[in-house]
Structure formats: structure tokens, C-alpha cells
């Protein structure tokens, strides 16, 4: 008992000081949680690249002919399809009906939406289902063994 008391009194930080800094620390964290989003909201260009075009790159030999690869473009899922050695298609994978993510069906070479059955061809054109317009297309080109995807 006595020893325990001793260790309390010899503690490098008093209880009051500890609780005090815990309260102040939490207050600072809470304030940061408000002011960081506020600053980002009011300075929208500061961190998002100031209008620079987003690009996505991948080595050509990583995507095989006939295969599709999912990637993130403009913070949304996108699809890269290698139709042949040199032919590439890059599409947004967001269904134009209600925004589900389409899947690539290799055999039929179609893009199918699992939600309400929209069907698109390899170039994103609507083949059937409720989709009102084609999938958004991006530019995909080959540059020295690398595939570069850019906004169209």
C-alpha cells in the first residue's frame, strides 16, 4: 500500500496535468476535425492539382489481349480492355442507368450490369437494358510499352 502511494506521488505527471492535457488535446483534435475540412472546402484547387489532367498508366505487358483490367480513374472505377495487340478501350465502369459497377464478360465481349441487366458492347455502346446512354469513354494509347489513359 505504502509503496503504491509513493509511486503515485513520484509520478512524473500529476493527474491534474494529465487530464488537463487530455482535455486540451481532444479540443485541438476536434477543432482540427472542423477546420481541416473547412479549409479544404474553401480552397478546392489547392490540393487537387489545380486543373491538371488525371492520367493512369500501366505497363503494356501487364494487360493481355482479350483481358480487361479495373482501375480507379477520377475517383471512380474504370475499365481498360485490350481488344487486340494495339487496340485499347478505356471506359468508366459506372453504369449510366443507376450507377452500379459493370462487369466484363470475356466470352461474349460484353459489359454487363448486375443491377438491372444493362448490356454494353466493348466500346461502351448500349446493347440492351435500361441504360440511357453509353459508358463514358476515355482516351487510351500506347507510349513506349506503357498504356496511358487520359480524359477524352
Amino acid at each position: 500500500m505504502e509503496e503504491a502511494d509513493k509511486s503515485w506521488s513520484e509520478a512524473p505527471v500529476s493527474r491534474r496535468a494529465f487530464v488537463g492535457s487530455a482535455v486540451i488535446g481532444s479540443a485541438i483534435a476536434a477543432a482540427a476535425g472542423v477546420f481541416y475540412p473547412l479549409a479544404r472546402y474553401l480552397l478546392p484547387e489547392s490540393k487537387s492539382g489545380g486543373g491538371k489532367k488525371e492520367t493512369y498508366t500501366v505497363a503494356l505487358n501487364e494487360v493481355h489481349v482479350g483481358e480487361a483490367r479495373f482501375f480507379t480513374f477520377k475517383r471512380r472505377p474504370a475499365l481498360l480492355i485490350r481488344k487486340s495487340d494495339t487496340e485499347l478501350v478505356a471506359l468508366s465502369a459506372v453504369c449510366t442507368h443507376l450507377g452500379c459497377i459493370v462487369k466484363y464478360h470475356e466470352e461474349s465481349k460484353q459489359l454487363l450490369c448486375p443491377c438491372h441487366g444493362a448490356k454494353y458492347d466493348q466500346n461502351g455502346r448500349v446493347l440492351g437494358g435500361p441504360a440511357p446512354k453509353p459508358l463514358t469513354a476515355y482516351n487510351a494509347r500506347i507510349e513506349a510499352g506503357t498504356i496511358v489513359v487520359e480524359e477524352a
Binding site: 475540412p37 473547412l38 479544404r40 472546402y41 478546392p44 490540393k47 487537387s48
Partner: peptide
Amino acid sequence: NDIPFGWAV
């Protein structure tokens, strides 16, 4: 969708 934290506001 585009403005940072706009969704939160």
C-alpha cells in the same frame, strides 16, 4: 462529388 468535403457539408 467534386468539391473536397462538399458531400459532408
